[in-house]
C-alpha cells in the first residue's frame, strides 16, 4: 500500500483499472529537442535573474525614494511612489521565483506518470481493538464506575464551571457603588425641561427661525460640553444626540405626544433603536430617517414609526418648545429609553 510505482511498470487489468495506465506516455518537446530544453533552461534562469534584480531594486527604492513622494499613474491616479515601487518589486520578484520553479518543474524535471493507490477508508481491525482496550482499561483503572461520589461531584463541578463566566457578563457595565443601576442610567439622558438645543460641533443655540422647512441639523443639549469635560467620556453624548428637522405642520401625520413639535420643528433621538448606530440620513422629501448600518427606516412625519428594516421600536421623540428668549428647548427628557432594547426595558 501507498508505494509509488512508475506507470510503465504498473500492469493491472482487473476491475477499476486506472485509465492513466492505458494512456501512452507522450514525450515533451524538451525531452526530445535539446534546443527546446536549452530554451527552457534560459527562461528559468532569466526569471531568477529578474527576481534578483527586482529585489535589488526594492532595496534601492526603499533607501532612495522619499515616502512622501506622490506620482501620477493612469488609472491609479495620485499614488505614493514609495509604496507603489516597494509593492511592485517585492511582489513581482516573489511571483517570478514561483513562476520559474513551476516552469523548471514542468519543462525540465523528469516527466513520468506515477500511480499512487488510495489507502482503504476503514481503519484496520487491530486499531479498533486498540482503542476499545484503551477505553476499557481507563474505565476500570480510574474507577469511574466504582467511585459514585467522585463521579457525581465531577459532573456537578463541570456543570457549574461555565456559570461564573455568564455571571461576570453582568458587570461589563461597572457602576460606582450607590449609583442607580444600568437600566436607570440607560433610561435617562441629559435632556430635561428647559435644556437648550444647540448645534452639534459649534454649540450654537437655535431659534425656530434658524431652521427652514426641509432643514435638518444634528444637535445636543447645551450643557453637554461641560458634562463631557467633567466625566471624560462620551456616554452622555451617546444618549443625548438628536436630529432636529422641520417640515410644514400639515405634513405631520402623527407624533408621540400632543404638541411635541414647535411650528413643524421635530426632534428625534439620533440613536437607532435596532443596534444603536447614530443616524442622520434624512430624506427631506419623504421625511424618512434611514440607518446606514442595517437599513432600518423611520418616518419622522408619522411619530418616528418604523417603515422598513429590523428596528422593532419607533425612534423616540423629544418634546420641544421655546424659552422666553425664543431659543428651542426640550420640554422634558425622552419619554422612553433611547437606543437598542435591553433586558430590563419594559
Amino acid at each position: 500500500m501507498n508505494e509509488i510505482t512508475p506507470a510503465a511498470e504498473h500492469h493491472y487489468d482487473g476491475p477499476g483499472a486506472l485509465p492513466v495506465a492505458d494512456v501512452p506516455h507522450k514525450a515533451r518537446l524538451t525531452d526530445t529537442d535539446p534546443q527546446a530544453a536549452r530554451r527552457a533552461e534560459r527562461q528559468v534562469t532569466f526569471m531568477f535573474i529578474l527576481a534578483i534584480l527586482l529585489f535589488i531594486a526594492f532595496i534601492v527604492a526603499y533607501i532612495a525614494v522619499d515616502k512622501n513622494t506622490v506620482v501620477y499613474i493612469p488609472v491609479f491616479g495620485e499614488v505614493g511612489a514609495s509604496t507603489m515601487l516597494l509593492g511592485l518589486t517585492l511582489g513581482l520578484g516573489a511571483f517570478l521565483i514561483g513562476a520559474a520553479a513551476i516552469q523548471w518543474a514542468k519543462k525540465l524535471m523528469p516527466d513520468v506518470e506515477v500511480v499512487q493507490e488510495r489507502h482503504e477508508m476503514a481503519s484496520p481491525e487491530s486499531a479498533d481493538h486498540e482503542a476499545l482496550d484503551a477505553y476499557t482499561r481507563g474505565k476500570t483503572e480510574s474507577g469511574f464506575a466504582q467511585y459514585k461520589m467522585i463521579r457525581r461531584t465531577l459532573i456537578g463541578a463541570m456543570a457549574l464551571f461555565p456559570i461564573p463566566l455568564v455571571v461576570i457578563l453582568r458587570d461589563l457595565w461597572v457602576t460606582p457603588p450607590g449609583s442607580p443601576g444600568p437600566a436607570t442610567i440607560l433610561s435617562h439622558t441629559l435632556w430635561r425641561k428647559g435644556s437648550r438645543i444647540v448645534v452639534d460641533g459649534t454649540y450654537q443655540p437655535l431659534k425656530a427661525s434658524d431652521l427652514p422647512v426641509g432643514g435638518m441639523i444634528s444637535a445636543v443639549p447645551a450643557d453637554l460640553p461641560a458634562v463631557e469635560d467633567a466625566t471624560g467620556n462620551l456616554d452622555a453624548r451617546g444618549k443625548a444626540a438628536i436630529v432636529v428637522v422641520r417640515m410644514a405642520p400639515n405634513e405631520i401625520v402623527s407624533q408621540q405626544g400632543t404638541n411635541w413639535d414647535y411650528q413643524g420643528i421635530l426632534a428625534f433621538s439620533k440613536i437607532c433603536t435596532h443596534a444603536g448606530c447614530p443616524i442622520s440620513l434624512y430624506e427631506q422629501r419623504t421625511h424618512h430617517l434611514l440607518c446606514p448600518c442595517h437599513q432600518s427606516t423611520f418616518d419622522l412625519a408619522d411619530g418616528g414609526a418604523v417603515v422598513f428594516g429590523p428596528a422593532a421600536r419607533p425612534m423616540p421623540q423629544l418634546p420641544i418648545g421655546v424659552d422666553a428668549e425664543g431659543y428651542l428647548v426640550a420640554q422634558a427628557d425622552f419619554a422612553v429609553p433611547i437606543g437598542p432594547s435591553f433586558w430590563e426595558r419594559g
Binding site: 437655535l206 427661525s209 426641509g214 432643514g215 441639523i217 430624506e283 427631506q284 422629501r285
Partner: peptide, 12 residues
C-alpha cells in the same frame, strides 16, 4: 432633491 437644508441659521 433628498438633501435637507442647512440654512445659515443652523450652519453659518
Amino acid at each position: 432633491q433628498s438633501m435637507p437644508v442647512f440654512s445659515n441659521g443652523t450652519l453659518n
